[in-house]
Every structure is written in structure tokens, then in C-alpha cells.
Amino acid sequence: MNRLLVIEAILQTNSFTKAAELLGYTQSSVSQMVASLEKEFNIQILKRSRNGVQLTPEGKELYPFIIQTIRQYQALKETASSIRGLKTGTVKIGAITSVSCYWLPDLFKEFQAEYPDIEFVLQQGDYGMILNWLKNGVIDFGLMTADYGEGFHKHIIHTTQMKAFLPLGHPLAKLDRIPIEKLADDPFILVEGGGYSEPLEAFSNAGVKPNVKYRIQDDYTIMAMVEAGLGISMLSELVFSRTNFNVVSKPVEPAVERPVAVVYRDKQTLPIASQYFIEFLIKNRKRLM
């Protein structure tokens, strides 16, 4: 099992040296374990290049099974822990920026007050990245829209509003609610959704096409660009609550919503710690409103 964990660490850090530091081994030991595994299977799994470490074509075929074996072993250990009471474990989450910034810090703090030895690994990304991490076993579950991603189990925990974000002094900032068609003419800064976009879906439903000038993944970069007068945008209401940007946020007409859900493949095969945290999220979903 240690050899498989070494392979995972090397690919996560893109370095034999960093993987050794992460796992507490010498670099020589890491190299020997990789060589031993490759000799056992008679397959080269990793190759080094100027860009770091990559899987060989044969390694790419093996890697999903390596990850599956690691996750099953972790689930085995955590099941044993759960028999004694939840003591240790790792919760691996993928989340969109607004959720990871606004909700998760307080939830982590509360959960660890009860289970202090539980570790969290949080990956931030767009919808496409989160779904890809789920498919490859990089994360246990995602926190993202329920409207995108086929073949996954989804449990909606809250519905947030998508609002228009405008520079100070923009003519539309005087309105209480902004008709979506009025957002189509200005330069539009689109939050990159990785395959799905609530704003684009809303524009399409309204029969108008936005003047998209920028596609940015980070919500806070978008707000900085709106503040600088580079355009307008539509973002989750959550991002406005913890920001000092000099921008205006107004509801859109008709309302544009994002149903935020816990998304996973099979809850029964998740690590025990992740099952506990999902139950904790569902139990506390009313506090997210």
C-alpha cells in the first residue's frame, strides 16, 4: 500500500523530492518503491521530464485502479475507526469558490470541535474540474450546482441567488431589480463554469446574447475587474457578503438561482469521515440560508 501512496503523492506534488518530504521518506526510498512496483507489474508507470513527473500511457491505464485501491484501504481503516468511534480520517472536498470561502471555514471549525483529529483537504475549482476530480477519486464529494453533471448522486443543501455586479455609478445600479436583457449590451465578465454557466443559461432562456469580453475563473478577480470599470458580471450573492470591493450588487429579473448540492458517486463507499461530514452538512443546511 505504501508504494501506491508514493505514486499518488508524486503525481500530486509533481516531484519525487516533494513526495518524499510529504510522506516522511528519503528520496532514495521513494525511487526504490516506484522501481519495485514497476518491476512487479513489468510496466513503467512514471516518466520524468522538464515539466516534472507524468504518467506513462500504461500508467494512465493503471492509475484509476491505484486510486481505487487507496480509497478502499482508507475506507477500511476509517471503518475500523468508526467501530471504535470516529477518531481519525480525511475528508476530501471539491468546491466552488463562493461555497469554500463563505460556508466551509465555520463548518470545518464546528466539525473539528467534535472530531478534532479529522483532516480536511479542500480543492477549489469550477464545475468541470470538480466532476473530473470525482470521476478520478481525487475528492470524496463536491459542493457545486445540482443542475450539472449526470450520473452522480446529489443532495441540495441550499439555493443561492445569482446577482448582477456593476461598477459604482452604472446607470443600472439605480434599479431595484435589473431585467436580464439590460445586462446584454455592456461588456460582460463571465465566471468560467467548466461546462455549465448559470448566467449563460439565464441569457439563453431570455432570448438574448451577452457581450462576453472576459472569461475568468475566480469570483474575486471578477469583482476587481468590475470595480475597475472593465465590465459587468453575474455572480453568487455569497461573494458580496465578504468583500470590500466598491461595486453594486442587485437582483436580476427574472431571478437566477444556483441550487448548491453535495455531489458524490456512491455514499456507501465514501470514507466514514466524509459520510459523517455530509450528514453534518445536511443537518446544518438551514444555517446556510
Rank of each mutant, 00 (worst) to 15 (best):
I118W: 06
Y115D: 02
A95W: 08
I45F: 12
K92G: 07
G94S: 11
L55M: 04
I43R: 05
L46G: 07
F120C: 05
L122K: 03
L37T: 12
Q72N: 14
L37W: 09
A80I: 06
G52Y: 06
N51K: 14
W103Q: 09
L122P: 02
Q123W: 04
G128P: 00
S100K: 09
F120D: 07
T79E: 13
K60E: 15
D117V: 01
G128A: 02
I66H: 04
Y73V: 11
Q68Y: 12
S49N: 11
L107Q: 04
R50P: 07
A75T: 15
L62W: 02
Q74R: 13
F108S: 03
Q72C: 06
V53G: 06
F41Y: 15
L122D: 02
V121F: 10
L86V: 01
K109F: 08
A80G: 09
Q68V: 03
V121I: 13
C101A: 14
A75V: 06
G94I: 08
I45M: 09
E119V: 09
T97C: 14
S49C: 04
P105L: 08
L104M: 12
I67D: 01
C101Y: 13
L104Q: 07
Y63I: 03
T88N: 06
G52W: 09
E78R: 03
K39T: 10
S28I: 09
A35W: 07
A35D: 08
D126N: 13
S36T: 13
K87A: 05
R50A: 11
S81A: 09
I96G: 12
I45C: 06
Y102Q: 03
R48G: 07
Q68G: 12
R50Q: 12
C101K: 13
V30Q: 03
D106F: 08
A75G: 15
L86I: 02
V91K: 04
S100W: 06
Q124L: 08
S36A: 13
K47L: 07
T88Q: 07
P116W: 10
T97D: 13
F111G: 03
L55H: 00
L122Y: 02
P57I: 00
Q72H: 11
N51G: 15
